[in-house]
Simulated assay, not measured.
Amino acid sequence: MSVLNVDFEGGEVLRPGAGLEVGCLSIAAGRIRAEPVGRRVDVSGFLVLPGVVDAHGDGFERHVAPRRGAMPDIGEGIASAEAELAANGITTGVMAQFYSWEGGLRGPDFAAQVLPAITAERDVLVTDLIPQLRFETHMLDHFAALPGLLAEWGVSYVVFNDHLPHDRLAQGRRPKALTGQALKAGRNPEKQFELLLDLHANGPKVPAALDRLAQVLAAQGVRMGSHDEHSAQDRAEWRARGVHISEFPETEAAARAAREGGDPVILGAPNVSRGGSHKGNVSAAELVRLGLCDALASDYHYPSLRRAALRLWRDGICDFATAWGLVSDGPARLLGLDDRGRLAPGKRADIVLLDKATLRVAATLCAGRVSYLNGALAARFLA
């Protein structure tokens, strides 16, 4: 797909610091230009917005492994997922792949297939894809190999998780979902229970091991975050290791501790669009209201990013520019992507156009290349 050199005229453009205003947005050679470039496209009736930057999403799992054996070519699954990203206005997508004791789609062997495929496909697809590894903290036997694997797979973003059911394991009780989880991973449930007990027993050794691992990864230039923090103490411990991104804090106290420490906070867009957490955690919309959010992420549902930004605006929690900034400029900044997230001269031409009547995605452009285009707007592009 060639790069467009066009002037989008008549639409409502979201300009930095100015909000929506009818005007012209010009792009050429993959960048936003200050002056018209020549070819006009009428986009009246559409909102012209910065492309969506998804700071964390694992919704691609159903594309790379819909059913056992249905997608033997992981690259084709990534390409299919990229089409869904584009259809939802996403121009940069962090694809979060588990490296977990859970096994199956979340196990180390599958990560070894998916992450290199993301790195390979990003060079031929339009949407900018960023691989992220979600690493389970109690897998001590895997710590030594991790830095080398990240380098081999082209991964420079790691988020630490701990999904072990520690309360039940501490009592020697079987987790409720053990049997189903074991069968999904192709394991005997009793062997799975033994594995979880062994991992839980690693607990006293984990903090010091994480200290050393984080130091190695930081020297390697790896961006690091932590997932599902419950308290201010949790955030302080991760910050001390140099792990500065707080993904999906479960309480206001954890989110506030991140903000007061200068650490960016990512919240789940599905939490906003549904009106609350499905796990009973703090409301993401309330944290946005309190100013404790830097970015929204798709989590497991790509359409929720656009829908969440619009809901925040419609519910009066914040103005349109602020709401859209949580899915564009905010995530771009926390990912260190200073070349996108705003419609300003010199920035990448990462753009999404929404039909003003329906507020659905009509077109998506990444660095001036069309990744998605439909309906009446497509006819205008081709006229």
Rank of each mutant, 00 (worst) to 15 (best):
L164G: 04
G11A: 10
R187A: 05
N5Q: 14
G154T: 05
V43P: 05
C366M: 07
V48A: 03
Q220T: 08
R212A: 14
V222G: 03
E82C: 04
A28F: 01
M71Y: 00
A87D: 08
F135Q: 13
A284C: 12
A383C: 06
A255L: 10
A87V: 05
G346N: 05
L164Y: 00
E82T: 06
R174W: 13
F381C: 14
N202A: 10
G336A: 10
N188Y: 03
N202C: 08
L164F: 03
V265Q: 04
R241P: 05
Q233N: 12
A214C: 12
F98S: 15
A236Q: 10
D315Q: 09
I78Q: 02
A182W: 03
V13T: 09
G154C: 04
R173V: 13
A295T: 08
P207D: 07
G276P: 00
D350S: 02
S226R: 13
V272W: 03
A254E: 01
Q233S: 15
Y372V: 02
R187C: 02
A257W: 01
E252Q: 12
A117R: 01
C366T: 13
D162Q: 00
E194Y: 06
L164C: 00
Y302R: 11
L337G: 06
A349I: 04
A81L: 02
F143V: 10
V352D: 00
G11P: 12
V6D: 15
A295Q: 02
G45T: 01
R306G: 13
L312G: 12
D299K: 04
F320L: 14
V243Y: 05
R67L: 14
F8G: 08
G59L: 04
E190A: 12
R369L: 01
S80M: 12
D211T: 13
G203Q: 15
L195W: 01
P66H: 07
I130L: 14
A177G: 14
A367K: 10
V52I: 14
L169E: 02
P249W: 03
A151P: 11
G225Y: 02
V3F: 08
G276I: 03
A83G: 08
Y99H: 15
E136A: 05
L196V: 09
A379V: 12
R223D: 01
V272G: 04
P36R: 11
R31H: 15
F8Y: 11
R241A: 05
L183M: 13
P331I: 09
W238N: 11
E136Y: 02
A321R: 07
I27D: 07
P165W: 09
L20V: 11
R134A: 01
E152M: 06
E61Y: 05
G11K: 06
R62Q: 12
G77D: 04
Y302G: 05
A255E: 07
S80A: 15
P131A: 02
L287Q: 12
H301V: 02
V361A: 10
S246C: 14
D42W: 03
V159L: 08
L197V: 08
I130N: 08
M1F: 04
L290I: 05
E136D: 07
T91R: 09
R314I: 03
G346Q: 02
R33H: 15
V64K: 01
T91M: 09
H163R: 00
R168Y: 12
A284D: 11
T137M: 11
V222P: 03
K356E: 15
E252Y: 11
E121K: 10
P116V: 01
